[in-house]
């Protein structure tokens, strides 16, 4: 199963390191990273593979919430299916 992680907030140092460290610890493999600006905000989008993940999406979300507080960023993990469903015919 694949998931999409979005990290949105003011740009700062250590975002990729912080988030990818969290993901490595729970066996989540990063497949692709992309970034863009969203009005005045920085948005990072990661596509990840959950095949070897040691935790499920809800538990990983909890860890990312904590990390997000530290980084003052909003971090969300969602199964890829919701984006495919909405944007592909």
């Amino acid at each position: 199963m694949r998931a999409v992680i979005t990290v949105i907030g003011k740009d700062k140092k250590g975002i990729i390191a912080g988030v990818s460290g969290e993901l490595a610890a729970v066996g989540v493999n990063i497949l692709d990273i992309s970034q863009t600006t969203l009005q005045e905000y920085f948005a990072m989008i990661m596509l990840v593979d959950m095949a070897d993940a040691t935790l499920g999406v809800p538990a990983i979300q909890k860890k990312l919430d904590i990390k997000g507080k530290q980084l003052e960023m909003q971090i969300k993990i969602q199964r890829e299916d919701i984006f495919n469903a909405m944007h592909e015919i």
């Binding site: 979005t6 949105i8 692709d32 992309s34 984006f83 944007h87």
Partner: peptide
């Protein structure tokens, strides 16, 4: 980016 869904679409969903 071939494996990834269009990032505009992802951000649209989030919004």
């Amino acid at each position: 980016m071939s494996a990834m869904i269009n990032k505009e679409n992802i951000l649209e969903t989030i919004r």
